[in-house]
Amino acid sequence: MRDPKWLKWVRIIGLGLLGLFTVTPIYVMITSSIKPLKDVQGDFHWIPTTITFSAFRDMWSTVPLAHYFVNSAIVSSIASVVSVVVAIFAAYAVSRFRFAGRRAFSITVLSTQMFPGILFLLPLFLIYVNLGTAIGVDLYASRTGLIITYLTFSLPFSIWMLVGYFDSIPVALDEAAKVDGSGPVGALIRVVIPAATPGIIAVLIYAFMSAWGEVLFASVMTDESSRTLAVGLQGYATQNNVYWNQIMAASLVVSIPVVAGFLLLQRYLVQGLTAGAVK
């Protein structure tokens, strides 16, 4: 494709504006986290006049941030790993077997994507409370309950994407493994999973991110001991004071793991989408 000259300018201006729009809040997040409290409460300044790292120190004691951090890490890791394992099995079944109910299953799973979360929030809350008293497993206000909830959130997208990905892997590879004496599950583990690694990593990132960032269920389904970052960060706005510098510092710190992970692995997400979902 020969690029005309004007395209260069359109590119610079277009990408420049998009970049500005994208980066401004991030810039403010970073610079405000190193300002003292009085500088974030008064008039806004682009360049920090006084630089202090006190917000990064104080944020741990204003709210029990470390505790929320651990909760979020446990919930998101377990939920995403289990969700991906479950999605791999389901996607393999949909991709490789023609069984009665296959279409119904795919449609049901995908259609849960369109449910407004608010529709099943309260019923789920009631189920967890009652299940807890019935079988003695505390699901409400526990990390287990949150893990179970979150792992279903990413399931539809994960299954959908992995089906596309598995479909792009030649069935001949499975057959070769079966000739070597593997059953269908052996073929899945020995052939399909290794060939689909980029897709699986992509799905894993997606699942982790969606669990790490969820707010609605976290705000209803947790108590002080199981609270995650999504709700915990609201603790910086008290009746008397809003610690904006600490909010920005905390936002920055809780974002680093997911953003770093995402950026490191984003090429897998693009590869996964290219091979699977958008085909």
Binding site: T22, P25, S32, V215, A230, S251, L263
Partner: peptide, 27 residues
């Protein structure tokens, strides 16, 4: 860079916007 807003946890990104949009001290 373009993908960062999508990667940021929603509460971190949106809370920063609420700071930007403050009447007195916002950008």
């Amino acid at each position: 860079l373009f993908l960062v807003p999508y990667a940021l946890p929603v509460y971190a990104g949106v809370i920063t916007w609420s700071f930007l949009l403050q009447r007195e001290s916002g950008l």
